[in-house]
Design a protein around this nucleic acid. Sequence first.
DNA 1: CTCGATCCCTGGACGC
DNA 2: TGCGTCCAGGGATCGA
Length: 314
Amino acid sequence: MPELPEVETVARGLQAAVAGRQILRVTLRKTDFIDDPAVIERELPGRHIVRIERFGKFMLLQLASRAAPAAPGDARAVVAQAQVSEALLVHLGMTGHLAPHLPEQPLAKHTHVTFALDDGRELRYTDARRFGRMAYLSGPALAEELRRFGADPLDVGAGEFARRIHTSRARIKALLLDQSVLRGVGNIYADESLWKARIHPAKIGARLTPTELASLRKELRQILLKAIELRGSSISDFVDVGGLPGDYQQHHRVYGRDGRACFRCGKKIRRIVVAGRSSHFCPVCQPAPRAAHGRRGRPRKKTKRNRPPATSKR
DNA sequence: CTCGATCCCTGGACGC
DNA sequence: TGCGTCCAGGGATCGA
């Protein structure tokens, strides 16, 4: 499932493969994941793709204004005068793929969008589950959309990270997954970084100690960088632009390992539901927070010891 | 403000 | 082999 490292991998691949190309035609099939299909059909043809970069779990295909047509194929000229206030946002959801193909290659199943490029190739979007999203945005609407998202976990400073986490009563797992707090973290890297930093996923953000905050920021960043280096995790069907799977799944320490031995202490990894998501953790290395839900401001006296938070119901 | 529940969607795993 | 059922999960939304 594409999270920050996987999206970064795809964005880099696309940058190398299709930056500077012009979109000649757009073909839409299923469109229920597109904000406004008519806008895509109207605005994209004729546009040059200036640059592709990641923004959280989105890819931004920055487009040159139509008013600035460069010599065909001359990416430099396009880039030079680009205003980059127009972009195609692509979210891969769970199963999205965006990659160039030769036109004679048969259409993969669930191919919903095809962009015909000026070099004869086709940039195709496939997405079996259609949990992804595609939108063309420009000007203030683009800026407003991007403002909804929090800090990039690779860039965020210690102070801002601490402020975003420490001022919240929500559980740390929920905060890590909240794209308005940090952009780009998903279930895998949330669990992996919490394990590395020895923090229980149900711990309240405001209760993290300064040491824990510092550790979490550092470990999250290092895990994401390592995962980018290995081109992401391929646990279901993730592959990069060239069809190559990532390797980071071999480095997972807790994700998908419930019942198996903790790499640090040997205890069995557990899986609980936090913030509606399965959360994998070591009950020894990541001790449960004490009586997390303070009932009506009464002093909690007889906290047993390790009261695991309600595990889930159904 | 934060929570859980629900929906979206399909493929894969599993049980019989 | 072939069903039926459950589950995964990012994000939006709604009511508690």
